[in-house]
């Protein structure tokens, strides 16, 4: 964001005569090639999503007999796809399930990971390096490696919680833990160590230091992880498909089922797809800055 401030300054300082047509506000050369190519790329990038949005508001017949780019003159607009998909595929319940799965699965891991990150950042202990390297390594391991035994542990042969929200909360908490510890530790180690030092001299316990000082100061990193994790849990297909019953399942699994029955429900598919995108899109546009920070501080996830 520093570029904007530089911008403002140069507008006031630069004399008007140098601000010819070929220059940007901050005095850089205007680049027509960059403008044209970027415009094309942006169009290319948003076209498929726009096409889906258009198709989701068209009748089955219209969508099957004319391209979505012809919708403006070919017509055939309707909103019934949305009401029908919510009714037939039970997307309302699935949407609620998605929220009830994603919110706890986003927030619970933070509590556990934050304490671990605190220990990794502000304490010295035996095996610290090895344990942190375990975290780095586990982030690379594909989560598929855990599924078969987990189906046994959580399924009817074991705890018998497979199919319930609980199973999925537990799994996302565990799977999200390495990334969360990693992101939080990276952020915490940028905090001034002297704060912790002086709090210790004042006689604060580690619990107090964590709770009153470090946790509030780490909020940007916590929000960064939360944004990443929310998108990940909401958009997840594998875990939801394996560990949730049909009553408890998420929008993404419903959407996959609609894709499977392609042909009968093509018009429902588009509406369903758009419903599944709405919430993550809002999260994305509101929390974009946190998302970027989350990615730059810990890009990998098993």
């Amino acid at each position: 964001m520093s570029s904007t401030t530089v911008d403002d300054r140069s507008t006031t300082v630069t004399p008007p005569k140098t601000r010819g047509a070929g220059r940007l506000k901050d005095g850089r050369q205007r680049s027509p090639v960059a403008m044209v190519v970027m415009l094309l790329l942006v169009l290319l990038w948003i076209t498929p999503t726009l096409g889906l949005l258009v198709t989701s508001f068209r009748t089955r017949d219209a969508a099957a007999t004319s391209g979505w780019w012809e919708a403006l003159w070919a017509g055939g607009w309707t909103t019934t796809n949305y009401s029908r998909v919510i009714e037939q595929a039970d997307l309302g319940t699935a949407f609620l399930n998605g929220i009830l799965v994603a919110v706890p699965a986003t927030i619970i891991p933070i509590m556990f990971a934050a304490f671990a990150a605190y220990a990794f950042t502000f304490m010295d202990f035996k095996g610290k390096d090895v344990l942190f390297i375990v975290i780095v390594a586990v982030m690379v391991v594909p989560i598929q490696a855990a599924f078969q035994p987990l189906l046994d542990v959580l399924g009817p042969r074991g705890l018998g919680i497979s199919g319930q929200y609980l199973a999925v909360w537990l799994l996302h908490t565990g799977f999200g833990m390495p990334l969360c510890i990693y992101i939080l530790r990276n952020y915490m180690s940028s905090l001034p160590f002297s704060i912790v030092e002086s709090a210790r001299i004042d006689g604060c316990s580690n619990f107090q230091i964590f709770w009153k000082l470090i946790a509030p100061m780490s909020m940007p990193a916590i929000a960064a992880f939360a944004t990443l994790q929310f998108l990940w849990v909401w958009n997840d297909l594998l875990i939801a498909k394996l560990f949730l019953t049909n009553d408890n399942t998420t929008v993404i699994v419903k959407l996959q089922q609609l894709l499977g029955t392609q042909g009968q429900g093509a018009e429902l598919l588009t509406a369903g797809a758009f419903i599944s995108i709405v919430l993550p899109m809002i999260v994305f546009f509101v929390l974009q800055n946190f998302l970027v920070r989350g990615m730059t501080s810990g890009a990998v996830k098993g």
């Binding site: 403008m35 970027m38 415009l39 790329l41 942006v42 990038w45 948003i46 076209t47 498929p48 999503t49 096409g51 889906l52 198709t55 979505w68 998108l231 909401w234 958009n235 997840d236 297909l237 993404i252 959407l255 996959q256 609609l258 894709l259 392609q262 093509a266 598919l269 588009t270 369903g272 797809a273 599944s276 995108i277 993550p280 899109m281 999260v283 994305f284 546009f285 974009q288 998302l291």
Partner: peptide, 28 residues
Amino acid sequence: SEKWAKSFIFMPMAISFVAASAIWLTTI
């Protein structure tokens, strides 16, 4: 314009693989 252009290219990040598949299957 940089901010807007980047936002649009970045946007599919929020879309699930499943929804992205639905998008490409129906529109492209």
